[in-house]
Amino acid sequence: MSVLKMAIFVVLLAVVSTPVHAKIRAVGKGDKMTFDPTQIPADLKQAFEIMKVKCIQCHTQERTVIAIQTGIAPVTGQPFDKQATKAYGIKMLRKPKSNMSREEVKKVVDLMNFLIDEAAKP
């Protein structure tokens, strides 16, 4: 009986102590790398679909994943924070033939900000 109680206690402890979205998970490697879709909440699924289709027209998703996970933009070496996500969004909006509308850019920026918040959780 005591063993069973101990087991239940350990399981409960494990469940309670596991933070939700504490880390940003990625799946795949190299140019196939992308965010683990299971950690994207329902209200950001559409933004994730936009990101998966539009962003990879010019660069791999790995670049975005690394930027979010490390907090550093890979090419420039600059901090990748919420100020940077908006700047990159504006850059992509202004980029000729980026094929991204204002609404799409806004959604992707919101998604990246969410991911940054999640990555910052302990």
Binding site: R25, I72, Q78, P79
Partner: peptide, 25 residues
């Protein structure tokens, strides 16, 4: 690149998080 401090120590070294490519991380 603008404001890039490539190759120089950062004042606040970035905290690395995540579970991406284990080799890169």
């Amino acid at each position: 690149w603008n404001k890039q401090k490539k190759g120089e120590p950062l004042a606040n070294a970035p905290q690395v998080k995540g579970e991406g490519d284990p080799d890169i991380l």
